[in-house]
Amino acid sequence: MTERLRDKTALVTGSTSNIGQAIAEALASEGAHVVVSGRNRERGERVVEGIRTSGGRADFLVADLDGSAEASRDLAERARHTLGGRIDILVNNAGIYPAPGTADTDEKTFDQVYGVNVKAPFFLTAAVAPIMAEAGGGAVVNLGSWIARLGVPLGALYSSTKGAMETLTRAWAAEFGPLGVRVNAVSPGVILPPSPEGAEPHPGEVMMKGTPAGRVGTPDAIAHAVVWLAGDEAAFVHGTVVDVDGGRTGVAVVAA
Rank of each mutant, 00 (worst) to 15 (best):
S159Q: 07
R215Q: 11
L11A: 06
V254M: 14
A32Y: 03
S195C: 00
A103L: 15
I23D: 03
G250F: 01
L192W: 07
T82L: 11
S68L: 08
A120C: 06
I131G: 06
N93F: 05
H238L: 14
R80S: 13
V254G: 03
E134Y: 05
V141Q: 01
E77Q: 14
G250L: 15
V128A: 04
A199I: 11
E175P: 08
G231F: 12
N40W: 05
V242K: 03
S72C: 11
R52K: 15
V128T: 06
T249Q: 07
M165W: 06
A71Q: 09
L90V: 07
G210S: 08
H202I: 09
T240W: 13
I19P: 03
G163T: 08
D243F: 09
G180Q: 12
G250W: 03
E134S: 13
A185R: 06
E134I: 05
W228C: 07
V251I: 14
S54W: 03
W172K: 04
L150K: 15
A94E: 07
G84F: 13
G101V: 00
R4F: 13
R215Y: 09
A221W: 15
A223C: 08
G31S: 10
L168F: 14
F60I: 02
T53V: 12
A230V: 09
N117V: 01
S145V: 03
G115T: 06
K119G: 03
I147T: 14
V36K: 01
I191S: 04
T2Q: 14
A185K: 07
S37Y: 02
E49A: 15
S29V: 00
S17C: 02
L143R: 02
G56C: 06
A133P: 02
G38K: 11
A174P: 00
V152H: 04
S54C: 00
G138H: 10
L154I: 00
G189R: 04
A28G: 10
N117K: 07
E134G: 09
Q21F: 02
E49R: 15
I222S: 02
S195L: 13
A22D: 08
P203C: 07
P121Q: 05
T167E: 06
D64A: 14
P194R: 08
V251T: 15
V237K: 09
D74R: 14
Y114F: 15
D106V: 08
V186Y: 05
S68E: 11
A235V: 11
A174N: 13
R78P: 07
G31N: 09
E166G: 09
T82D: 05
E233I: 03
F110V: 00
G250E: 12
A256I: 05
R215V: 07
R41T: 13
G44H: 07
V36L: 10
P130H: 11
K162C: 05
P188T: 08
R4W: 14
A76P: 12
F60S: 06
P188D: 10
N92D: 01
V91Y: 01
A24D: 05
G95D: 02
T2V: 11
A32K: 02
D64L: 10
D104N: 12
N93W: 03
L27K: 03
L143K: 02
I51G: 01
V12A: 06
G231I: 10
G38L: 11
M165K: 04
L179V: 00
N92G: 00
R6F: 11
D7V: 02
V118G: 01
